[in-house]
Design a protein around this nucleic acid. Structure first.
Lengths: 147, 147
DNA sequence: TCTACATAGATGCAACTGCATCAATTTATC
DNA sequence: GATAAATTGATGCAGTTGCATCTATGTAGA
């Protein structure tokens, strides 16, 4: 039903993303570091700064499922990488803040993860091609991204 | 460490692929159909025809882990979608062949999956852009694909 | 205010994944 | 041909995910 061009692009997207994720996970594992999902959360929290983020904000940003974030945060807390603070004006919620140890872990992960990105993507395409990829994929996003 | 362009392309790739997979899985689930992974295997087996495929060939084609294929095939067999045949010249192995019911399931899955591809990708980019995506992603593959 | 409804987050249970390892062959080496 | 090494596929166990549901709190409407 879809055009052959669309099927091919879809297939490439599926296989390449799977392959790249696997490579990046592998590199982290070899470095004795936590999986990619931890990085995503630590990254968002690091960017958020001292104010931290509510779990539901992490869900919006990372696209992880609610129960997934809930348990991931429990593991991160157990490892001392984040802390859960009660939030003043909403008794249901909590604010998640990254700890110093969390920042350190994120830094060590980035040393490996960043290298993977550089090798797997940065070294394979020219700057022009990279921004072309970003632009085209941005159109596939929901909602579409213009840049 | 990687260039900002590379990071952005990577981030887009990660998020878009996650999002698209989720949408496609969702559509299948709503149709009361099995998950994407089943389609991948049934598709390969349907293309292989009566000769079938060895599990290790499926691993090469789909990039699933060995234990994953092993158990997925057990489920497919339990559902009567594939059959396992002993292979003459190799006592260790087996040949997996899709059944009529398997072909039928694949067809019903494609009706939904194909529509997802058309909507999520085919409708978002022009034919030129689609082949551009395929070409660029092909370069990220290992080994790189030329076309 | 009382009741209904919505939202934030956690959790029991079943299914699935990842890891390590196993058993059964086949292939290579001597 | 005998022994070691490699390959094929399965599986026990622990950790994770998905689903449904639950508790607790907040919000809206009569």
């Amino acid at each position: 039903m879809p055009a052959p061009d669309a099927i091919k692009a879809w297939a490439r997207l599926m296989r390449v993303s799977r392959q790249l994720i696997e490579r990046a996970e592998e590199a982290l594992k070899e470095g004795g570091l936590p999986p990619l999902a931890w990085y995503d959360v630590l990254h968002e929290l690091a960017e958020a700064g001292e104010g931290g983020l509510r779990p539901f904000q992490l869900i919006e940003r990372t696209l992880f499922a609610q129960y997934n974030i809930s348990r991931l945060l429990a593991r991160l807390e157990a490892d001392g990488l984040v802390e859960k603070l009660p939030v003043a004006d909403d008794g249901r919620g909590q604010t998640i803040r990254i700890t110093a140890k969390g920042r350190e872990t994120r830094r060590r992960m980035w040393a490996v993860y960043g290298r993977s990105i550089a090798e797997l993507v940065g070294a394979k395409l020219s700057p022009d091609e990279l921004s072309m990829v970003s632009a085209l994929l941005g159109r596939l996003r929901h909602p579409p991204a213009g840049d």
